[in-house]
Write a protein that binds this DNA or RNA. Sequence first.
DNA 1: ATATTTTACTTGCAAAATGCAAGTTACTTG
DNA 2: CAAGTAACTTGCATTTTGCAAGTAAAATAT
Lengths: 164, 164
Amino acid sequence: MVSPVAAKPSPKHRSGCPVSISLDVFGDRWSLLIIRDIMVRGLRTFSEFQHSGEKISTNILADRLRHLENAGIIVAERAADDARSIHYRLTPKGIALAPVLLELFIWAAHHEPTGAPPAYVEQLEQNREAILAETYRRWQHRDPTPLMPPFKSPTRSPKGNRNR
Amino acid sequence: MVSPVAAKPSPKHRSGCPVSISLDVFGDRWSLLIIRDIMVRGLRTFSEFQHSGEKISTNILADRLRHLENAGIIVAERAADDARSIHYRLTPKGIALAPVLLELFIWAAHHEPTGAPPAYVEQLEQNREAILAETYRRWQHRDPTPLMPPFKSPTRSPKGNRNR
DNA sequence: ATATTTTACTTGCAAAATGCAAGTTACTTG
DNA sequence: CAAGTAACTTGCATTTTGCAAGTAAAATAT
């Protein structure tokens, strides 16, 4: 049995629309950043998330980790070497959010002043499939090598407003 | 001049990461639903949004419309026929969120019990580009014909947890 | 062996965001 | 010209967030 997801009549959701349900699950300011940290920055532990750049407070972090775990997006497991440490990893449901993160990334890099170098963004756009495949490969191999660096502060203006 | 986006050193953002910035702009429970309503359901007015299924209260709706307009994602324009009515439409920056919404949709349809029929989701996945092209075409032509119906309540369990 | 750190959290409280109900103002329709 | 209707605003209660300061258990340093 491969954990069949229960088909409950969604008690906690506002509507049956998948977009709406996505937002019910991780539609806040922090959840996707935690997922990003695990997925592309190779972070695993509470304190790594805590010091990951954007100052999340510990109560909120604990709360979000709980929620993401309850939603089946991450799993917590004790570290082999340190009995205090807990490693959070993405489940299949969690790694499946890679395309969402990628599109979010590309959108903001195009339309907001971000810290992502234009040439880098160009690369991502041109090689969506390859990037996703590599992300997935690292997940399978539990390879914590960061796929991307943390982008610090805006280097320049967003790319021209060409659409499509 | 084609409205060059100012290259300010992002005063209101938590970090330079594009994902983080996206969340700063529309990372709440309602913004993307409004964008979805305009993009794929053909809704235009305040009262249409208000009665669009998931019960947003009017003060929040007004606030989100203001924010989305300030962010350059939507524009408000008076209706030609009715001087009271205001039509909200997506800007190029707004329609560029189509891939994000599509991936959110596909993710939830696969991993949560939603109201979207599996066969329909299959179609979407197989024809991402075509769907996006059609979405974009309707936006260009200001065609308010809904691309998708509102999905009511979960019909069955989410599709099997195959990844990739 | 004991003191200090480190890790993963809680707890308490103030501040901000959200939700609900009831206005309000400017049109438009009967 | 009275009664809608559209797009909000306002007040207030509830919930969520953020900040600072704990705490328990395990690891490390002396």
